[in-house]
Amino acid sequence: MAIAALVPGALLGWVVYEAVGGGGGAEHPAAAPASRTSAASSGASGNSASPTGSAAADAKGQSAAGPLAGKVVVIDPGHNPGNFRHTTEINRQVDIGTNKKECDTTGTSTNDGYTEARFTLDVAHRLRTLLEKQGATVKMTRDGNSPAWGPCVDERARFGNNARADAAISIHADGSAEGDRGFHVILPGSVHAGAADTRKIIKPSTDLGTRIADKFQRDTGEPPSNYVGKGTGLVTRTDLGGLNLSTVPKVFIECGNMRDSKDAALLTSGAWRQKAAQGMSDGIVSFLRES
């Protein structure tokens, strides 16, 4: 979830990477960005993804039978492959309660051009499948064909709120320096300012995040971050609109560092991404079955 936009070299790598169909054999590559016309149909601003429901849900929004029947999970795949073409739109400032921040960023990429946006969508698809098998109703803030950019961070938060999610997770990968590696789960800090009030979600979000961190490490073998979190795999932040504006239990996960060669080898592996999705699913299931 690097804050800086993709550098020109990374953009060139992305173009080459997409052209040759890279990504370790991803089963769910991100589709080409949707047209603004189709994206506009989902919201007045034209960039909001309409609630993308579970493939297992019927016309009434009910999921298949299972231990998580009746539970709603929102998956937020970070960034968007079209963001770098819409810099004006994603640089627009939005209110996150404590201050204003960019609508979204481009995200990062591996040195070979495998983008964070593509990674997050692939893992999100895998996670959705696993949770549907448990009977959960799953909704995604974006999918392969929409929107063309964004959604903005405040819209991503509202998506989970409007869905009345029992749990929400925003999937990312980091863009730190070579040698910085490992995962970390970001928990909401205490914020009560403007439109933001996280006080009611801190405890359940911490429980959710702790369970995800435990299962993610177990299932993937990925160590906790060696550059943030002091080896716990957990970090608390108050500067993320997706957490500040959430009214439902929500966490972010940085699955690894795309700029580190060891982590990049994992993140570009389809087999490892399946393990990553399994770890997230196991943590979410554990949380929901006891909540």
Score class of each variant (00 low, 15 high):
Ser109Ala: 15
Thr110Gly: 09
Asp112Gln: 14
Leu121Ser: 05
Val123Glu: 09
Ala124Lys: 07
His125Asn: 15
Arg128Leu: 11
Thr129Arg: 15
Lys133Trp: 09
Gln134Lys: 15
Ala136Val: 07
Thr137Asp: 13
Lys139Met: 15
Lys139Glu: 13
Thr141Asp: 00
Arg142Trp: 08
Gly144Asn: 11
Ser146Ile: 06
Ser146Asp: 07
Ser146Gly: 07
Ser146Ala: 13
Pro147Glu: 03
Ala148Trp: 12
Ala148Arg: 01
Gly150Glu: 04
Pro151Leu: 00
Asp154Gly: 13
Phe159Lys: 05
Phe159Glu: 03
Gly160Ala: 14
Asn161Lys: 12
Asn162Gly: 06
Asn162Thr: 12
Ala163Asn: 07
Ala165Trp: 01
Ala168Ser: 12
Ala168Ile: 00
Ser170Glu: 04
Ile171Gly: 04
Ala173Leu: 11
Gly175Leu: 15
Gly175Ile: 15
Gly179Cys: 04
Asp180Arg: 02
Asp180Phe: 11
Arg181Tyr: 14
Gly182Leu: 05
Gly182Ala: 12
His184Ile: 03
Val185Glu: 03
Val185Lys: 02
Gly189Thr: 00
Ser190Ile: 00
Val191Glu: 01
Ala193Thr: 09
Gly194Pro: 12
Ala196Glu: 10
Ala196Tyr: 06
Asp197Ile: 02
Thr198Gln: 08
Thr198Val: 05
Arg199Leu: 02
Ile202Cys: 02
Ser205Cys: 01
Ser205Asn: 07
Ser205Met: 01
Thr206Val: 00
Thr210Ser: 06
Thr210Arg: 04
Ile212Glu: 06
Asp214Lys: 15
Lys215Arg: 15
